[in-house]
Design a protein around this nucleic acid. Structure first.
Lengths: 352, 352
DNA sequence: TTGTATGCGTTATCAA
DNA sequence: TTGATAACGCATACAA
């Protein structure tokens, strides 16, 4: 026992048994008597034994590490999903390695390569916005390594996925605006190659059609949906003198930009224009007016993603797993930016 | 060569040399000829050889993994520091394992335990708000494992630290308010057991004293500095009819709460009350008025923290490292919430 | 139920 | 400069 670290051999020596016996005792192997098992556990505690995961990983081929690839952890949605994944993973003694792709295709490939290099047992990922070629994900599957996608998924891959019903969320949001009396609803969307944005747009359109409102292509603006993009898109609509009475954005960030530009142009919110975002970022609750938005159920999504992952991991034949798609219902969080009658907690109310 | 994975033995066989030779070629060992080195590298590429980090870790005792402990990755500051750490780490072929303590003492201990279990080569950490006992960090040092702290540090540990000059940042912020004509500046602080908050308060006080303004304890309010706490503290000051003309908060979140309450109570910003926050969270640029705040230089902090870490890691004698403290100068970002004359880009301006 | 023997893939030591 | 051999700590097939 050198440099303070006890191994199974130290325990074995102390107890006058062999290392195999100790190993079995420590791993809930049935081929051991309760008596020795107890003794081993006791000795392990006394020697302050900490298993060497690396040796175990080398021998067993399991690192008890899950690689999680997200565009950025600095987003309420993603960090909450990670938290949801960790809850489940830690409960079965797995550890999560977080990797950020920064929505960059090159970085995404590198980071997956790096995760495979540290021998993760599997990967959970959300695909970056700029990623159009998914060969690096195919490589994971070809190696027989479990892969689960969440939120930003693709149909090009036959893997299990956990998503929210973007269509449903967008439909609810749009219908809510219609119920509040809006007829000319601007929609901010992103590239239609990205599934979630395609679905949100479809939900928006179907809600309009259901209520007999024609889809006006002039009202749909495409961008990267950052705050600045929201500013630009909004200003364009205003400058083109296109009539509108609401904005439903596929992102909380771009709706913020719209909110700024609208105020700068003298519009009263929500009287003149009603706003709904998507994502329920924390800041949406402290804008003025507070922002109606769609909550994506991030922690449950993380839980379910991890559970799906472990189901796959525990299957014998990695090549023949049946992929399943879990769809969560998002929730419309109604705040002041979309309401005819102001909620009494509104800051706007009280200032006026 | 089974299941598609080439090992150094496969390369050795192909080239009719031994595994040792291959290993040397792959690891820039000087005891090898250029000719064989070239051949090995070529063969490695042909066989698509990927080194097994786990085997290497077991043998060499180095996992090429750094554990990073942060309260939460879902904060602009922390996620940027992580990014800064990753930049450096990846450049020397190290991988970062991010662990969140959620500002919970128990979780912090568990997560460090878990990191040590996956055999990280060292730990970079920012101490949680509720952590008062640092024995779990002492344990890391006792094991001879490199440890570097950033931002939320402690004096109880003899380790290298990277911090910003909180005193300086607070001093600048307060002096700026004084220059803008404020005399009764409320200060929001947190527990004085946490170094950064103690320093910020000290900076606030010294700036006042320098300008001959007495420190009025009634103006200093302690809380957890969340948005809700800011609301409560602000309302308390108002209700107590304590005169004030500015608020300098040690956190962007609580200053948001103050901003809300002030507006609800009919104060005009920044005319009646000027505000300065701390942290430069992204949302501070889209409040109304836009918020003056202190930028903590997060990416450079991450870079320097990682560099410091590797300096220590590369030292022969882990027990005798000399700890050093790096102090970065924060930067005051002046926006509209603290200015007498409004900046022309101001949204307030344009609405009015 | 326990022990024996072996190997996971790499690196380090020693010898040639 | 290269090769042979052992060892890192653990888990498992096989034997007892």
């Amino acid at each position: 026992m050198k440099n303070g670290k006890a191994t199974i051999h130290d325990i074995a020596e102390k107890l006058q048994v062999t290392a195999s016996t100790v190993s079995r005792a420590l791993n809930n192997n049935p081929r051991i008597s309760d008596a020795t098992k107890k003794k081993v556990l006791k000795a392990a505690k006394e020697l302050n034994y900490q298993p060497n995961n690396i040796a175990s990983a080398l021998r067993s081929g399991k690192s008890r590490l899950i690689g999680v690839v997200v565009p950025t952890a600095n987003r309420n949605f993603f960090s909450s999903v990670i938290r949801g994944i960790e809850e489940i993973a830690n409960s079965v003694n797995y550890k999560v390695v977080i990797s950020q792709s920064y929505d960059d295709y090159e970085k995404e490939m590198q980071t997956i390569e790096a995760l495979l290099n540290v021998q993760v047992d599997g990967i959970i990922a959300s695909i970056g916005k700029t990623t159009e070629n998914v060969d690096h994900y195919k490589k994971i599957l070809k190696k027989g390594i479990p892969l689960v996608l969440f939120d930003r998924v693709t149909n090009e891959l036959d893997v299990s996925q956990v998503v929210i019903d973007d269509y449903y969320g967008a439909f609810q949001a749009t219908e809510h605006l219609i119920n509040e009396g809006c007829r000319r609803i601007v929609h901010f969307s992103n590239s239609q190659n990205i599934n979630i944005y395609k679905e949100r747009k479809r939900g928006y359109e179907d809600a309009l059609l259901k209520h007999g409102i024609p889809v006006d292509l002039e009202l749909i603006r495409f961008s990267k949906l950052q705050l600045e993009d929201g500013r630009t898109s909004m200003q364009e609509v205003i400058d083109a003198k296109i009539p509108f009475d609401a904005v439903f954005s596929a992102s909380d960030y771009s709706i913020m930009g719209a909110m700024q530009v609208l105020k700068e142009n003298g519009y009263k919110l929500p009287e003149d224009v009603k706003l709904v975002g998507f994502g329920d970022e924390p800041f949406t609750s402290f804008t003025e007016p507070t922002l109606t938005t769609v909550n994506q159920k991030s922690i449950p999504m993380g839980n379910i993603t991890a559970e799906t992952f472990f189901e796959i991991l525990n299957q014998k034949d990695q090549k023949n797993v049946i992929s399943k798609k879990t769809i969560l219902k998002p929730e419309l969080i109604i705040r002041n930016s979309s309401l005819k009658t102001q909620n009494h907690n509104s800051t706007i109310d009280l200032i006026a």
